[in-house]
Every structure is written in C-alpha cells, then in structure tokens.
C-alpha cells in the first residue's frame, strides 16, 4: 500500500486548484444527481462528463483505468446475472434467454457506477487528504471524526509497513499461504501481534502528542481561499448536474 493518491493530489491542474470546499460541494451535488439517474442516455452522459472531469485533472490514464477496473470488480457478477434474471421481453435473435429489461438495467447500473466512481477519483486524486478533511470539517462533519480520521491516515502507512515486514518474516521462515488451519492460525497471530503493537504504539503516540502540547485539537496551517475561478467552476458543475437531471426526466 502506498500513499499513491497523495502523490498525485499535489499536482497542478484546474481540478487541483479548485478550492476544496467548493469542489466537495459541487461534486457531491453531481454524485447525488448521478445516483438518481434512471435512463441509460443520461447515465452515459454522466459517465462521459465524469471522465472529462477526471481528464481535467491531468492524472495518469493507465493508473486511473486500473483503479476503476478494480473498483468495479464487485459489480461484475451483478452485471452478468441481471440480464438473465430480470423478467421481461426476450431479446430478439439472441441464443441466450436474455431479457431486454435485464440488459437495460445492467447497462444502467454499470454506467451509473462508472460515473460515480470516476467523480470520486477525481476528488480524491486532486486533493491532499489533510486539506480535504479540513474542508469536510468546514462543511459540518464533526471535528472529532475528522481528527480521528487524520490520525488514522497518519498511522495507516506505518502500520501497513509493519505488516509488510511481518509478512517478510513469515516468508523467510517458510510460511506458505495455503488454505489450512495452520496457515490461518499463523495469519491470525500476525493480526494479533499487529493489534498488540498498536496498543503499545497508541501509548507512545499519546505521550508524543502530550509533549507537543496536544489538547485534543489538531491544527493545520492550511487556509482556505476561494475566488471567482472557484465560483465559476462550481457554477458550471451545478449547471451540468442540473442538465443531467433534466435529460433524465
């Protein structure tokens, strides 16, 4: 696991320069519209819009495609089954008992998921996590939740690295990941040790924070500043979302 999103989030593009608060609200509105789309036509337009948005972030295309594919992996069984199980008029000229309604539904689900995921990636890969979480806090997400998330994010990579080292240690000692009780037990102990070390780490983190004058509130130096370019981008985004909604009716 790498802080890959963070790597790209510090790039420079119109999408990156968009103020995080305005970007979050606009993209949230867009996603709310995308979720409710009922026609394939509108969903296709939404997916294209989302891909254009992602392209505006000048992010590496290969990486984004791979991410989109893995994110949709859970959806694929659904897409394969639905054309067969949804009742409706059979598709003329097809050797398989596929219904038109089922195909329509599968296509709609696919496009909707693609659009939502793409907008999500456009958000995540163009905003550093710290800035985004602060923006969410400004928008009304409780401070407590934001601070725990920030701290979790901070220690995620430390813990991930620790787990990687433990897997190396296992491999060196001849561990094979087989479907057996012994292998599961060994991995269970890895999980147990991770939790144990977390407990010890918690104590050290708490002490380190106390040494630096932590009183239950994390502070950042980031200041939000929004100007006309942000407002224009948001206005265009909201208008496009409204347009999608109209097309769908």
């Amino acid at each position: 696991m790498r802080a890959e999103a963070e790597l790209y989030a510090r790039g420079d593009s119109p999408l990156h320069r968009w103020d995080a608060r305005w970007k979050t609200v606009t993209l949230a509105v867009l996603i709310a519209v995308l979720v409710s789309l009922e026609s394939v036509r509108a969903a296709l337009a939404g997916a294209l819009m989302a891909l254009a948005l992602l392209a505006g972030g000048r992010l590496p295309a290969g990486l984004m495609l791979r991410r989109l594919l893995t994110a949709q992996a859970l959806l694929f069984p659904c897409l394969v089954v639905l054309p067969f199980t949804v009742p409706g008029a059979p598709l003329p000229g097809s050797p398989l008992p596929v219904s038109r309604e089922g195909l329509h539904l599968a296509l709609l689900l696919y496009l909707r998921a693609l659009a939502i995921l793409t907008v999500g990636f456009a958000m995540v890969y163009s905003t550093p996590m710290v800035v985004w979480l602060r923006a969410l806090q400004n928008l009304g997400i409780p401070r407590r939740l934001v601070e725990i998330t920030l701290m979790t994010y901070r220690y995620l990579f430390t813990l991930g690295w620790e787990l990687t080292r433990m897997r190396w240690a296992l491999a060196v000692r001849g561990f094979r990941n087989r479907p057996s009780r012994a292998a599961w037990r060994a991995l269970a102990q890895v999980v147990g040790v991770t939790l144990l070390r977390s407990l010890e780490r918690t104590e050290r983190v708490r002490q380190a924070l106390a040494c630096r004058g932590f009183q239950g509130r994390l502070r950042t130096l980031h200041e939000f500043r929004a100007g006309p370019p942000d407002w224009i981008k948001s206005a265009v985004g909201i208008l496009l979302a409204a347009g999608l909604w109209m097309v769908d009716r």
């Binding site: 701290m151 995620l156 813990l159 620790e162 990941n177 999980v191 918690t202």
Partner: peptide, 29 residues
Amino acid sequence: VAGLRDDETPRVAVFTGAFFCASLLHFKV
C-alpha cells in the same frame, strides 16, 4: 463517540488503522 475522552482519540485511530491493514491480508480459498 459519546463519552470519548480526548486522550482516547489516538487509541481509536491506531486501532482503526490496524484493522484497515489487517483487512488487506489475503486468505487462500
């Protein structure tokens, strides 16, 4: 979150991270 003390924050955070990482382990089936 009710009754969460300020010094409990790191504990919840670190454990959340630990579980996140543990869920990345593969188990062969």
